[in-house]
Amino acid sequence: MELSKSNYTVHIDIDLEELIPAYLEKRRKDIQTIEAALGSDDFETIRVIGHSAKGSGAGYGFDLITEVGAQIELAAKAQNQALIRDNLETLADFLDHVVVIFDEEDV
């Protein structure tokens, strides 16, 4: 998945500010866990992590994490290592470059 510069800027409700650093840090750990799981063909672990990221990403404001999570879940079910690695790269790139702008709540 190719990311343009605009994909790195994410607008998030200010009430989530305190949760965001820990959330992004966990996703970085997800990458390490998935890489380790790839080494042992543990696709079930990868599927669960992908499923979880799919469910929570957009809720926090990170649509891309939901998209990547969904792709990883599907790829894990298909045991497609290449597709998993591709998406891990996208996720790692996103986490390295993301710029979060906190906006006033719209709720």
Binding site: L16, L19, Y23, K26, S52, G55, S56, G59, Y60
Partner: peptide, 15 residues
């Protein structure tokens, strides 16, 4: 079972 999601929901509903 997803702690991140529980945290998100609880945080959002705190008000």
């Amino acid at each position: 079972d997803d702690e991140d999601l529980r945290q998100l929901i609880i945080h959002k509903f705190k008000h």
